[in-house]
């Protein structure tokens, strides 16, 4: 019942529209251009977080997720995709910052002219989505307060 309530909440949370991840070109950590539709693997859900070097709350949230990720993985299999929307000012720095914050477990993507951010309608950072294994957006949230990451994991668990 609790799972059901969470799922309903998640659906309502997504604004009732079950949008899918649009296909936009972004750069991966190896400097290769990839389509965002390839993030959907049909097997595991993901937390998709848009961040920028200038957004301290985004970094706070990703650090909080990073701290808990190993423990969470024992309960549910999922991926964390961190999309830097930094433009030329900070995109090179974003790469170094991600490594120096220990985000090696995350899939790191670079959206240098904010095409993906715009397509996902996430104008204000931090903005995080939970996407199920079929690519449907089941939950999203803007802004971050310490502890807010637990709700993301509750949604992930409800998808099992």
């Amino acid at each position: 019942m609790k799972k059901f309530a969470l799922a309903v909440l998640a659906v309502l949370g997504a604004g009732v529209v079950m949008a899918q991840i649009p296909s936009v070109k972004v750069e991966n950590s190896r400097g290769k251009s990839i389509k965002t539709s390839t993030l959907v693997d049909g097997e595991t859900p993901m937390i998709l977080s848009f961040w920028a070097v200038s957004c301290s709350n985004c970094i706070l949230e990703l650090n909080a997720i990073s701290e808990k990720y190993p423990d969470w993985l024992e309960e549910a299999d999922f991926r964390v995709v961190a999309v830097s929307v930094d433009d030329a000012k900070n995109s090179a720095k974003a790469r170094a910052l991600a490594e120096g914050n220990g985000w090696g477990d995350f899939t790191l993507l670079y959206d240098k002219n904010q095409d993906f951010q715009r397509a996902m309608n996430a104008p204000v950072l931090p903005h995080v989505f939970v996407v199920d294994k079929t690519g449907k957006i089941v939950y999203s949230h803007t802004a971050y307060q310490a502890g807010g990451e637990d709700e993301l994991f509750n949604v992930i668990k409800s998808l099992k």
Binding site: V11, V16, M120, P123
Partner: peptide, 22 residues
Amino acid sequence: SLACCSALCGQGNKGYVTGSLE
């Protein structure tokens, strides 16, 4: 809940609408 949503927002081959307000 999924089925209900699909009916409401035209999920599937009808496409979907997303947007933002600031």
